[in-house]
Design a protein around this nucleic acid. Structure first.
Lengths: 420, 420
DNA sequence: TAGAGTTAGTTCGTCTAACGACCAAACAAA
DNA sequence: TTTGTTTGGTCGTTAGACGAACTAACTCTA
């Protein structure tokens, strides 16, 4: 059991949604309550099933306070009492778990050719997982928003039928998304200045829950943090492995989105000066020397179509498994370039973990070791500053899952649903 | 006057010094008090002189609460009442200012050839500024620590003579400093695994104030944030311009040190594959293509000695001013390479500002425009994602100043001296 | 089977500190 | 002088964490 770890020097800080430059906000008692409710909620999430006494002992909160907080969370239907402990000395404890049934968090990932929607309960367990073709690349942004809204409505209806209240909806987009959830630039989608979060909220007509949008890599990082095997990790970088390459940065336990929300654009860092041309107009970008487009261009005859990405990757995997020297060589080169990109991240940010997502997962057997070696060789800090390069276990749905995780994060940081 | 900006969703978060992975700490009333004391202190810092009524109106705190908080801060000798307002309708207000006299924050920067010590008061005004030769590169780490301790003792004695209490001491080191203030690697100093903060605290024999150590670029970033013209900026990157090049990262308003404390090592990112060899064993590092060593190697006959850096830079400046085409060409190349490094930072972190420090300041007329152009041309986000490249106005003492700022930051975030 | 011991959770009184309402003080303008 | 305005303090209220005492419900032991 954990020991109490109270610490005298704490400040109440606004954790989300505050305008930049407003400075720290003063605190009052409701903030104390919100903080402690969130502490208990998170403790139960990580330690369920557990008793009130466990919570008190581990958090350092007073037993009476914990009882009050738990009662509040039960009122809000966030926690639920389950059975009693048995065969133990002393009074049996009533165990607490997260209540999975009353709420849902919705995440949607849009991409050039497909759209993924997931809903999870408070525990993070999947309630729904749809994947369907979506003409994101060819439709106008207005049509795309309408399509997303349609899917969102259907998800919400489904959740309502299950008697669940939707706590929020987040959309993951491959592109630059500003801090207001407006897509400033999404080259693959052909979007520019689309107020996705706003338009979607309008299309859903005052949905009664927050609608947000963010970059797919950012949300992938959140998914790793919540659903991946990274207990206690506070500095993590997630790399998407699609046609493009993007990074999501979690530093000191929170997503860092940059001044305008455009952080993580690792794909257009120059890795090979004078290298192959990139659609962005420059040459040798990480994306063209370590993304999947270039790999497929050279292995699959007739060029790459986004809609056929998965079978084409499978073909690469098959040829690699068969020992095709051309493919193995290309993968080794890709791994080297990827490792150089990871090395940049390791030197600049010193994360504890860099997670490879997307199609990198399938290619991991042929690229992971080389990329890690390359990264370690380029890190100034001994042993890469403790940085590990690992493969995501979340599969393709990471961004959508992260979008849902974004909603749960918001709950975990104090935005609780009102009591009934 | 600012408008009240209370925000319902706040959490009390541990702001510093907590072990990683311990998760969020519960809050009690003392945290509310500490938070609000810090809010008032910071408000007065940024708006002095101001009245209690101003504070209440701008922060949204209750007038009665503000009065109580101000009384507390006056007890602690952090604030001081100054005169009354005149010629205004209504009762004249008693104005409040930071009390500059009772405290001092000490910062020391060590380098290969020199040592800088500064002390500032609560307002950030300089009380003392020493710069002296220091055989950091040639002495053993033990001798160096003893030397630093000697200087520190003299600074403390001086402050004590002025009847000031030292609130803390921070040492800036060019190298990898872990989260405990232990220097893991400082190639230029020839140090490895030197527990600088610990040894120094020991040498000062229970000094009664915290002794910390951190990387010079990190502390330079803090100096810019506090003393530079960057009001409201929450995402800032500072680049040191010495023989080596390091970065200090401020993201979302706080220094981000990475998982082990080794963030910001931009100097050993490969910028020119197959470029000139670097002392780290690799080639084409930013440090050798945009640092000052390479520049001086090619402009100053007979190689570079750290002790002669300043006059040698001056010679470069003179030759540039005279229009020496060789020097201008070298500076242009350096600027291009620097811009490529800044472009990486802009793409990955999307800061609002990148500040060039150290000797880059003197070279700015010949490198700033080119570097900025290069950065903008490499940023995926339009207009560099709003990133500006500017020159530091703080001069060479930035790291020492930042070390002192580190102490003030600690006060600003709630670690207040006890009342008398 | 009757304590004795142990653990869980509640009740109740205390205390901290923010808040709202009110009030006196001190000025300018009429 | 009167009126209005602004400042800053007092006082009672209130939210909510905390500590101690208490009850509940079990196991263990004699």
């Amino acid at each position: 059991m954990m020991r109490p770890t109270r610490n005298g020097a704490q400040l109440i800080t606004n954790t989300q949604g505050s305008a930049p430059g407003t400075g720290p906000q003063p605190a009052d008692f409701t903030d104390v309550r919100a903080t402690n409710l969130a502490v208990v909620l998170r403790f139960v999430r990580e330690n369920a099933p557990c008793s009130r006494a466990d919570i008190a002992a581990s958090t350092g909160l007073n037993k009476a306070t914990v009882s009050s907080l738990v009662a509040d969370l039960i009122d809000r239907r966030l926690l639920r009492e389950t059975g009693l402990t048995e065969n133990r000395v002393g009074r049996p404890a009533t165990m607490l778990v997260l209540d999975g049934s009353p709420y849902a968090a919705v995440g949607i990932e849009v991409n050039v050719d497909y759209l993924t929607a997931v809903a999870v309960d408070l525990k993070g367990e999947a309630l729904l997982s749809w994947r369907r073709a979506f003409p994101g690349g060819s439709a106008s942004s207005g049509q795309a928003v309408a399509g997303i809204a349609g899917v969102a409505r259907r998800v919400v209806t489904r959740m309502t039928k299950e008697a669940r209240q939707v706590l929020g909806l987040t959309v993951a987009v491959p592109g630059l998304v500003d801090l207001n959830g407006s897509v400033r630039l999404a080259p693959n989608m052909g979007w520019r200045d689309v107020d996705l979060a706003g338009d979607l909220a309008k299309a859903l007509r005052d949905p009664g829950f927050p609608v947000l949008a963010d970059n797919d890599a950012n949300l992938g990082a959140l998914a790793e943090l919540r659903f991946g095997p990274h207990v206690g990790v506070r500095d993590l970088v997630y790399l998407t492995g699609e046609i493009g390459v993007g990074a999501g940065l979690v530093l000191d336990g929170r997503l860092r989105r940059g001044g305008a929300g455009f952080s993580g654009e690792i794909g257009h860092i120059e890795i090979v000066p004078g290298g192959p041309p990139c659609h962005c107009g420059r040459r040798g970008c990480l994306e063209v020397v370590a993304g999947l487009g270039a790999l497929l261009d050279r292995t699959v005859p007739g060029g790459v179509s986004p809609a056929e990405l998965e079978p084409e990757i499978d073909e690469v995997v098959q040829r690699a498994e068969a020992g095709d020297p051309v493919v193995l060589d290309l993968l080794d080169t890709l791994a080297g370039n990827l490792g150089r990109g990871v090395g940049i991240v390791a030197n600049l940010l010193n994360p504890e973990v860099v997670v490879l997502g997307g199609y990198y997962v399938k290619l991991a057997p042929w690229i992971l070791a080389r990329a890690e070696q390359e990264m370690l060789g380029r890190s100034l800090a001994p042993a890469g500053g403790g940085c590990r390069l690992v493969v995501s276990g979340l599969g393709y749905g990471a961004a959508a899952l992260g979008a849902a995780a974004r909603v749960l994060d918001s709950v975990d940081s104090g935005r609780l649903p009102a009591p009934a």
